[in-house]
Computed example of a mutant assay.
Amino acid sequence: MEKWFNVGKIVNTHGIKGEVRVISRTDFPEARYKVGNVLYLFLPKSTTPIELTIKSHRTHKNFELLTFEGFENINDVEKFRDGILKVPESQLGELNEDEYYYHEIIGCMVFTMNGDEIGKITEILTPGANDVWVVKGKGGKEVLIPYIYDVVKKVDVKEKTVFIEPMEGLLS
Rank of each mutant, 00 (worst) to 15 (best):
Lys3Gln: 11
Lys3Thr: 14
Val7Leu: 07
Val7Trp: 02
Val11Leu: 11
Asn12Ile: 13
Ile16Ala: 13
Ile16His: 09
Gly18Phe: 08
Gly18Asp: 02
Glu19Met: 09
Val20His: 01
Arg21His: 07
Val22Phe: 01
Val22Thr: 11
Ile23Trp: 01
Ser24Asp: 06
Arg25Met: 12
Arg25His: 11
Thr26Cys: 07
Thr26Pro: 00
Asp27Val: 08
Pro29Cys: 12
Tyr33Leu: 13
Gly36Arg: 10
Val38Glu: 00
Leu39Asp: 04
Leu39Met: 09
Tyr40Ser: 04
Leu41Cys: 07
Phe42Gly: 03
Phe42Thr: 04
Leu43Trp: 00
Pro44Glu: 07
Lys45Phe: 13
Lys45Ser: 14
Thr48His: 07
Thr48Asp: 08
Thr48Ser: 08
Pro49Asp: 06
Ile50Trp: 03
Glu51Asp: 06
Lys55Gln: 07
His57Glu: 05
Arg58Met: 06
Lys61Ala: 13
Phe63Gly: 00
Glu64Lys: 07
Glu64Gly: 04
Leu66Ile: 09
Gly70Cys: 05
Phe71Arg: 03
Glu72Cys: 12
Asn73Cys: 11
Asp76Glu: 14
Glu78Ala: 14
Glu78Asn: 13
Arg81Val: 15
Gly83Thr: 10
Lys86Leu: 07
Leu92Trp: 00
Leu92Glu: 01
Glu94Ile: 14
Leu95Glu: 03
Leu95Ile: 07
Asn96Leu: 15
Asn96Tyr: 11
Tyr101Phe: 15
Tyr102Pro: 00
His103Ile: 05
His103Met: 05
His103Pro: 02
Glu104Asn: 04
Glu104Cys: 04
Glu104Leu: 04
Ile105Cys: 12
Ile106Asp: 05
Gly107Ile: 05
Cys108Lys: 08
Met113Pro: 00
Asn114Met: 10
Asn114Glu: 12
Gly115Gln: 02
Asp116Lys: 15
Asp116Tyr: 06
Glu117Ile: 15
Ile118Cys: 02
Gly119Asn: 09
Gly119Leu: 11
Gly119Arg: 10
Gly119Ala: 13
Lys120Val: 15
Thr122Asp: 08
Ile124Ser: 02
Pro127Met: 09
Ala129Ile: 14
Val132Gly: 00
Val134Ile: 15
Val135Gly: 05
Lys136Asp: 04
Lys136Thr: 03
Gly140Val: 04
Val143Leu: 03
Leu144Val: 11
Leu144Arg: 11
Leu144His: 08
Ile145Asp: 01
Ile145Phe: 05
Pro146Asn: 04
Pro146Glu: 04
Tyr149Gln: 14
Val152Tyr: 09
Lys153Thr: 14
Lys154Phe: 13
Val155Ser: 02
Asp156Ile: 14
Val157Phe: 00
Val157Gly: 02
Lys160Gly: 03
Thr161Leu: 10
Val162Asn: 08
Val162Glu: 06
Met167Arg: 14
Met167Lys: 14
Glu168Met: 12
Gly169His: 11
Leu170Ser: 01
Ser172Cys: 10
